[in-house]
């Protein structure tokens, strides 16, 4: 199941050219960008792992895209997203966040039903990938 989240979740995956344009838009607005990755794509998992620190004082998108590509190289089967932060509200606020890489196979989620008292049922989502320990999910030919 193709997981979507973030700013362009309703669009097909962006090409590198489109990603570059979005990064440039963010930089032109003075928003620093950061790259994050995860192998736990549960929608409630807000805290992805940071690929380096947020990048401040950049002018041109090439530097950010280079980091995205570095991260892709190191984590070819992870989800990777790009965030842009707007500090104008007095604290760093996410202004833009979108996925820039996904694993080649996404097994998706199963729904789990929990019997509750009075015959009530509670539902929860469980990513198939999360059955494996952290770091071993979405592996292809031994790659991470």
């Amino acid at each position: 199941m193709r997981i979507t989240q973030g700013t362009f979740s309703f669009l097909p995956d962006l090409t590198d050219e489109e990603i570059t344009k979005q990064i440039q838009y963010a930089l032109d607005n003075g928003w620093p960008c950061s790259v994050e990755f995860t192998d736990d794509p549960h929608p409630r998992n807000t805290y992805w792992e940071m690929w380096g620190l947020p990048m401040f004082d950049l002018t041109d998108a090439a530097g950010v895209l280079a980091e995205v590509n570095e991260c892709r190289k190191a984590k070819p089967e992870h989800y990777i997203r790009l965030n842009a932060y707007n500090a104008n509200y007095g604290k760093q606020t996410v202004a833009l966040s979108f996925i820039v890489q996904r694993p080649s196979e996404e097994p998706g989620f199963r729904v789990e039903r929990q019997e509750w008292h009075d015959r009530a049922i509670r539902y929860t989502l469980h990513p198939y990938a999360a059955d494996k320990p952290h770091g071993q999910r979405y592996q292809q030919n031994g790659q991470q």
Binding site: R2, D13, T15, D16, E17, Q101
Partner: peptide, 14 residues
């Protein structure tokens, strides 16, 4: 429904 990436467009430049 598992939405598919349209075949005409390859995402992420991968």
């Amino acid at each position: 429904p598992g939405s598919k990436i349209p075949a005409t467009r390859v995402g992420f430049g991968m």
